[in-house]
């Protein structure tokens, strides 16, 4: 019995000690250093205009529908790009619901971009991401959308192509991950921000 009590005391006190050290001191030290060394990143990589309006985060995607903007991927987060309810569709490979929604996305994408009715469509353009907040599209996807955006804005395709290139991140260190286009940053650039 005495042994049990000594174990309970140990358990209670070590829980409190870990709470102080690992859940108090440690996150606060990380917070302090992060706020000094990487203030913009530690606070969400926010895009803030001169008047203080927050336009979004460079890491979080936003939905776009009109022809003059590049479109993000379909999103399963809330009503679309809802950053308080991140997540994917979680529909499996034999899901009819998924197949139907992909078929609809393909039809829409072909019409929007003036593609032939049997043209293959980039996979990322018609599938929902895991987070529902994917800020990126593939380069192929951006290039398919490029003529539409150029036409809607009365810009030359070369100009838009150059903007795509300027907002394309290569694979990290040349081999990690995929090259990708940040849609929000590209659209902000198109708007002249």
């Amino acid at each position: 019995m005495k042994e049990l009590f000594s174990h309970i005391r140990g358990a209670v006190m070590v829980t409190l000690a870990l709470a102080v050290v690992c859940c108090g001191i440690y996150p606060l030290v990380v917070f302090g250093i992060a706020q000094v060394c990487f203030p913009a990143k530690a606070n969400g990589s926010l895009i803030v205009e001169a008047d203080g309006t927050v336009r979004g985060s460079r890491l979080l995607g936003q939905p776009f529908a009109s022809d003059k903007y590049f479109h993000s991927r379909p999103s399963a987060a809330g009503t679309g790009y809802d950053a308080t309810s991140s997540g994917g569709s979680n529909l499996g490979p034999t899901s009819k619901k998924l197949a139907d929604s992909i078929a609809q996305n393909i039809a829409d994408y072909r019409i929007q971009n003036g593609l032939a009715t049997n043209a293959p469509v980039p996979a990322d353009a018609v599938t929902a991401s895991g987070s529902g907040l994917d800020p990126h599209i593939s380069i192929q996807n951006a290039l398919v959308q490029m003529p539409r955006v150029a036409k809607a804005r009365g810009l030359s395709e070369e100009k838009v192509r150059a903007l795509i290139a300027a907002h394309t991140d290569p694979a990290d260190l040349g081999f990690l991950g995929e090259p990708r286009v940040n849609v929000l940053m590209l659209n902000l650039a198109l708007d002249g921000h």
Binding site: L91, L98, T127, S129, S131, D169, E178
Partner: peptide
């Protein structure tokens, strides 16, 4: 493109 449903472009 492979199976991109539920995957992020950067990965």
């Amino acid at each position: 493109g492979g199976n991109m449903e539920g995957k992020e472009v950067r990965f």
